[in-house]
Amino acid sequence: MTMKLKGWALAGSVLAMSAVAHAAPPSPTMLANACAGCHGTNGGSAGPTMPSLSSQSKAAVVDAMKKFKSGERPSTVMGRLAKGYTDSDFEAMGEFFSKQKLHVTSQQVDAAKVKKGASLQEEHCNRCHNEDGREGKDETPVMASQWLPYLQMQMELYQSGKRKMPEKMAEKVKPLSAGDIDALLHFYASVK
């Protein structure tokens, strides 16, 4: 009720000009649709360097958006965009994307690397990147079917220190060779 009253008060000046009905605050769909011009309809990306957001967990989206906004996570454009929203907007967007089904991609992956990655993931990554990357513990992002060039870009950002790797993840990543890491990313990209 208070919400509605506020809406009416805001619309007051316009009512004189045209019949503007009062409106509810932006819904999860309203907020998330605006992202789709870059991330694809319902967050399913067709562009190999732009991450899919569909089926991403709510916690991962909220965590990423907060870090983009504060600048803790480096970005080309997301930082500028994230500054336009509140934490509750982030929750709403996360809610929307978590309800979309996984965007399955058919990418060029190296079969031998996929096999090697599959054998490594259980011991090194599965603690947080669960179910072959289809799920993630807490704010751990879903990586199944994510675009390989995007994952490689993110790994480079981590390893150059520009993106801060979670400590516990760093412990698991450190002992692995560049080839092992590459194999793991091929594996996650291949998961359907």
């Binding site: 789709a36 011009g37 870059c38 991330h39 694809g40 309809t41 990306s45 067709a46 562009g47 190999p48 360097t49 732009m50 080309t76 454009v77 500028r80 965009l81 994230a82 500054k83 336009g84 929203y85 870009m153």
Partner: peptide, 30 residues
């Protein structure tokens, strides 16, 4: 206090050229 333009030193320009291609692909696919 939101939005704005790319950094003035062109530090992101190469990455943005790569993202722009994916943007086009996504918006035309939409």
């Amino acid at each position: 206090n939101s939005g704005g333009v790319s950094p003035a030193d062109f530090s992101a320009a190469k990455m943005e050229a790569i993202f722009a291609e994916s943007w086009l692909k996504n918006i035309l696919t939409e």
